[in-house]
């Protein structure tokens, strides 16, 4: 973890996060616990028997062929999809149908989508301040100050008064990241955040994610950006046909994959 610690110096990290980050991964607590999780769509088993533990401040990149259940898996972590068997615990909160648990979990988990899903009828600033005002009940002035800080962090404070459609794809995705961060989540989910972007805009979004990883955010990223994975991920998870095939540090995945399917897939995309 020495190298990620090196990046930290450049960014502002809250004291409690810094304290956790100072410890090596193995000594941190599990913030995401999945045990034998299953999910079916009709007869089709989209996620089968996935068990995974993610440490606080860890960055996990999830990759695999399309239809391998990787998106479905991370969507179960904030209950956009319901798991039908197994157990999911987020920061000590068990995922059940209890609305209070669900509210608590959604406060813990932020999400960034492939298609941005910004609200087109309100301004960039409104997109970011909406949930802090309505869910966390921040006063408007405070929510706007927070939003402006986040927009500065993702590098586009001058776009605050515009509508999403007036921004480029890369800028929209950075607004989406700021919007999710405004709820001050402990965990961020990224569902193919760069797949809908033109090539020249991918870098600006990955840079924002890199910066976020350096602040000690726990991140689960579904992405095929293998350069990003090699550089930022603590571990990588390879999904195929709904199952977690292999989970390990980037070094193992890229240089010494333990499973034939991992090797085959990497040979195809690299």
């Amino acid at each position: 973890m020495a190298e990620t610690n090196g990046v930290h110096a450049a960014v502002d990290i809250p004291a409690d996060k810094a304290e956790i980050l100072a410890r090596p991964l193995e000594e941190r607590d599990d913030i995401v616990v999945c045990e034998n999780v299953h999910k079916w769509f009709g007869d089709f088993c989209a996620v089968r028997d996935v068990s995974m533990r993610v440490k606080r401040g860890e960055v996990v990149v999830i990759f695999g062929p399309s239809g391998s259940g990787k998106s479905t898996f991370i969507r179960m972590i904030n209950r956009l999809e319901e798991h039908q068997q197994g157990r999911i615990v987020i920061d000590g909160i068990e995922m059940t149908n209890d609305v209070r648990n669900l509210d608590a979990i959604r406060r813990e988990v932020g999400m960034v989508f492939q298609q941005f899903n910004l609200f087109p009828h309100i301004t960039v600033l409104g997109n970011i301040t909406l949930a802090p005002q309505r869910v966390r009940h921040l006063p408007r002035s405070e929510a706007e100050a927070l939003a402006m800080r986040l927009l500065e962090r993702v590098g586009i404070p001058e776009q605050a008064q515009k509508y999403p459609a007036e921004l480029s794809g890369g800028q929209q995705q950075r607004v989406a990241i700021a919007r999710a961060l405004a709820m001050q989540p402990q965990i961020m989910l990224f569902d193919e955040p760069t797949s809908a972007l033109d090539p020249e805009m991918i870098k600006e979004v990955l840079d924002a994610m890199r910066e976020l990883a350096a602040t000690g955010m726990t991140m689960l990223c579904v992405t095929h950006e293998m350069g990003f994975a090699r550089e930022v991920a603590d571990r990588m998870a390879f999904f195929d046909e709904g199952a977690l095939v292999e989970l390990g540090p980037p070094d193992q995945i890229f240089n010494n994959p333990q499973e034939d399917r991992t090797k085959l897939f990497l040979d195809q995309i690299l």
Binding site: N78, L80, R106, G110, F113, N117, L130, A131, R134, A180
Partner: peptide, 23 residues
């Protein structure tokens, strides 16, 4: 309205009625 809008609202912790009225 695109279903992604409701997903984004839920992911942000908005309740269903808030999603309906605001989004």
């Amino acid at each position: 309205v695109h279903p992604g809008q409701a997903e984004a609202a839920r992911a942000l912790g908005l309740r269903d009625w808030q999603n309906t009225l605001l989004i």
